[in-house]
Design a protein around this nucleic acid. Structure first.
Length: 648
RNA sequence: GCCUGCAUAGCUCAGUAGGUAGAGCAACUGACUUGUAAUCAGUAGGUCGUUGGUUCGAUUCCGACUGCAGGCUCCA
């Protein structure tokens, strides 16, 4: 019998059935065969060794494609599990998927793995690759599979199989003496994995992601198509880690943290200068967008948090204090306070939408393990605002907000934003009808803006669904920054009302929103995004005036004063040091512009400008520099350190 | 909170198979007045995170605590 195989370019060819992906690849070219790791058959990824018995459209998956890398990484996980079982037979295997850049496998074992064990495991993995064991796909009967895995002491595997949907085919992959439940696809043999992998870290992880369950030991690894790719990745990571905001915060003297105040930041002059630049920028932008800024109390009676529902859901994470037999909470968020401001006086539908903004200082007693540099802290300031509006106004407000957010992120130099829609959680307040409408409103806004977004079912806040706007840090970790949440319930719980056109009293809808999220977190990401070399408008010190000889001191001071008068953040370095030393130091501090002042400049009334990232020196008059640099600051130009040109 | 690891001078790090520690940079002093990424010489600087234990003796070994790092969980 012959079957028709159609290729990606539309061409097709007849083959004698059955035929395998490996044979097809071999027939096309030896290079393709060498690089093949799997085959896509009618849109489904198959093993190269699986027999194709009917007409099909196929495409060979190669080792350097995204799909191919996923197969390699998944195989690396299996090879690791095999290695672990060989070295530590008492270990139970659970799950081991491919992830971005690599893979992991979760193991259950009494004794903890040590970093030295990782080396042993990695060495054994290399052995298994060298053995080039054939990887064989087998279809098993469900009950047989369950009893087999139980019989060899793999309780977790048995549990996974028992929970698979009834119509799912149970496939088991065999490599050497190691059998693992898996959907596949896998490589034809372990040798094809080659040597582009490395075990990277050891971590704890809960069985099925639930902290009530047993904690397993997770081993992470990274895997690439070959050793060269692996090395390139490791080098990239090493470079990226140099941009870590904690390192730069210290090196650039921006802030520090210390034991006595875990999760709280001591901002130093330069860090605070950035902080203030960001905050005052946001204040101006919000004013422009029709927000009114307010300020609400830090310490508020616990009863308000009970009414809002926060005390019952987040009570453990709130800092509370008792004074004169009265219990207070240090505000963990601003919303209930904003409703109090709304509630003062009688509001009309003509007042809506009412946009109240606050740089709200919040304290949350986050679990110690979740603290992370200045990205996740216990004391932070949100660029928070609440929009009180009618249901009809939601669409326009959400749309307007998304545009606003995009323009802010663009000013800061962020072009990659991750959008997520989080919908109703199990524990929530409000009717299902309200949730339906709120979720729909957000979904529509995302689609109207033609954004690519990811759905996170059950991840919404307890009072409403939300859109999350996330950014990535230097090593690719995703952090939520902006948010837009629709809330139909809190205004009602806290007694907010307005008089409608017909004279009736109505409860407004409340939109919770933030663009930066926590200013602290945003600054952390901002520092990493620019590797500490902030664009001129954000740089804590924008200009450094450095003298070459003492004789130029007076003129240098005049220059610095003129720059300050022009609204620029300028310092002067009169130290008795060589100019090379000063240039080096201020370059390491990533100051956007160094003005070198010698006898010549003092006599001519000029400045010798050296921009960060460039070795070029440009002599111009002080006036010319103020105009040029001032414009760059005013226009919030993003400076490209590599080319010394403003970015598009 | 849980798992694994880490904590030495202001910073970056070395070191002690258990006998109270060292480098570079920074700081300070002096000389040098300098033209675009480190001028030279000298001085000073540490209860080796805190706290128990083992030991004649602990920075080193063991435990607890605190903090940090990487994950997991959580994130109003």
């Amino acid at each position: 019998m012959s079957i028709q195989i159609t290729f990606p370019d539309g061409a097709s060819k007849r083959f004698d059935a059955p035929i395998t992906g490996l044979q097809i690849a071999d027939g096309i070219s030896s290079g393709l065969r060498r690089n093949a790791v799997a085959i896509e058959v009618n849109g489904e990824a198959w093993d190269l060794s699986r027999e194709i018995t009917a007409d099909a459209t196929v495409s060979i998956i190669t080792r350097d494609s995204d799909e191919g890398l996923e197969v390699l990484r998944h195989d690396a996980a299996h090879v690791m599990a095999e290695a672990v079982k060989e070295l530590y037979p008492e270990t139970q295997v659970t799950i081991g998927p491919a992830i971005e850049n690599g893979f992991y496998y979760d193991f259950a074992r009494e004794e903890a793995f040590t970093p030295e064990d990782l080396e042993k495991i990695e060495a054994r993995m290399k052995d298994i690759v060298k053995r080039n064991e054939e990887i064989v796909r087998e279809v098993w009967d469900r009950d047989e599979a369950i009893s087999y895995f139980k019989s060899i002491g793999e309780e977790y595997k048995a549990e996974i199989i028992a929970d698979l949907p009834a119509d799912e085919t149970i496939t088991v992959y065999r490599q050497g003496d190691f059998l693992d439940l898996c959907r596949g696809p896998h490589l034809p043999s372990t040798g094809i994995l080659r040597d582009g992998f490395k075990l990277t870290k050891l971590a704890g992880a809960y069985w099925r992601g639930d902290s009530n369950n047993a904690q397993l030991q997770r081993i992470y690894g990274t895997a690439w198509s070959d050793k060269k790719q692996l090395k390139a990745y490791l080098r990239r990571m090493e470079e990226a880690e140099k941009r870590d905001h904690r390192k730069l915060g210290k090196a650039l003297d921006l802030f520090h943290l210390q034991d006595e105040a875990p999760g709280s930041i001591f901002w130093h002059p330069k860090g605070w200068a950035i902080y203030q630049a960001v905050q005052s920028y946001m204040a101006a932008r919000q004013y422009e967008h029709g927000y009114q800024e307010i300020k609400t109390p830090q310490v508020v009676d616990i009863s308000l948090w009970e009414k809002s529902g926060h005390a019952s859901k987040f009570g453990d994470d709130m800092f509370t204090l008792v004074n004169d037999e009265r219990e207070y909470a240090i505000k963990p968020m601003n919303c209930p306070c904003h409703v109090q401001v709304f509630n003062q006086g009688l509001k009309s539908y003509r007042d809506l939408p009412l946009r109240l903004a606050e740089f709200g200082s919040c304290h949350r007693n986050e679990m110690s393990g979740s603290l992370h540099g200045i990205m996740r802290v216990r004391s932070f300031v949100q660029d928070d605002a609440h929009i009180f509006c009618t249901e009809d106004q939601i669409q326009a407000e959400v749309k307007g907000f998304i545009d606003f957010l995009h323009s802010v992120y663009a000013d800061f130099g962020f072009d990659e934003i991750i959008y997520k829609l989080s919908t109703r959680p199990e524990q929530r307040v409000g009717s299902d009808e309200d949730w339906d409408r709120a979720e729909l409103a957000l979904e529509q806004a995302l689609n109207d803006n033609e954004l690519e977004w990811e759905l996170q079912p059950g991840e919404g806040a307890f009072y409403g669904p939300k859109i999350e706007f996330s950014l990535k840090d230097c090593i690719g970790r995703v952090w939520q920054c902006g948010t837009m949440q629709v809330d139909f319930s809190m205004p009602g719980r806290l007694g907010a009302e307005y008089v409608a056109e017909d004279g009736s009293k109505q409860v407004p809808v409340m939109l919770h929103r933030a663009i930066l999220g926590s200013i602290e977190r945003f600054l952390g990401i901002l520092i990493e995004q620019h590797a500490g070399a902030l664009p001129a408008w954000l740089a804590p010190q924008q200009v450094m005036v450095a003298t070459i000889v003492t004789e130029a001191n007076d003129y240098a001071n005049e220059v610095a004063q003129a720059l300050r008068n022009a609204g620029l953040r300028a310092e002067v370095d009169l130290r008795n040091e060589k100019i090379g030393y000063k240039v080096r130091e201020h370059s390491l501090q990533k100051i956007p512009a160094i003005l070198c002042i010698g006898k010549r400049e003092a006599e001519e009334g000029t400045v010798a400008v050296r921009r960060f990232g460039s070795k070029a020196q440009t002599v111009m008059t002080l006036e010319e520099f103020v105009e040029q640099f001032g414009l760059e600051v005013e226009e919030k130009q993003l400076f490209d350190a590599g080319t010394n040109n403003p970015k598009e």
